[in-house]
């Protein structure tokens, strides 16, 4: 379910970061692959009444139940496509699912020397990098749900 970024494919140094670049509401975001536990088709989520911001549902995958972080809602965006994907990330409190656009995520090798401070405050980020005119934030998975 992944394709390799053609423009950025090069020799991988030991210090390089492997990133997964994905889209939510047409906006490109990145996450370290070490923080990713899987990508699959999105199963219908099951709403859970509660008060935790952006954590209002779970998805069931066989015998496993994962909380859903509504990244799109936190960014005031709407997930695009009729076949959205489920991005599973390793959160310190346990595995968590996010609904992302149907566009297939891309693997990208990143030199941390090019890491910039993310200018936005709409999501927790470890930093960002520039791709053309776009600033792509690198999601800080461990802070999802605690600072947004």
């Amino acid at each position: 379910m992944l394709r390799t970024g053609q423009k950025h494919q090069r020799e991988t140094s030991r210090q390089s970061w492997q990133l997964l670049v994905f889209s939510v509401g047409g906006r490109r975001l990145a996450v370290k692959t070490v923080d990713v536990s899987g990508i699959s088709q999105w199963n219908e989520s099951i709403p859970v009444a509660g008060r935790t911001p952006f954590v209002t549902a779970v998805v069931r995958q066989w015998q496993t139940v994962l909380p859903v972080f509504d990244l799109a809602a936190s960014l005031h965006l709407t997930v695009q496509g009729s076949s959205p994907l489920c991005l599973k990330v390793r959160h310190p409190l346990g595995e968590m699912a996010m609904r992302i656009d149907e566009e297939i995520p891309v693997l990208h090798t990143f030199d941390p020397a090019a890491l910039q401070t993310y200018q936005g405050d709409d999501l927790p980020a470890e930093g960002s990098y520039t791709n053309g005119l776009d600033e792509i934030p690198i999601l800080s998975v461990s802070r999802l749900g605690s600072t947004v």
Binding site: V48, V55, P67, L93
Partner: peptide
Amino acid sequence: LPRQFRGPERHWYRGM
């Protein structure tokens, strides 16, 4: 209940 649910709902439910 997954620990990501951090609000008062932790008192509402005994689990799933």
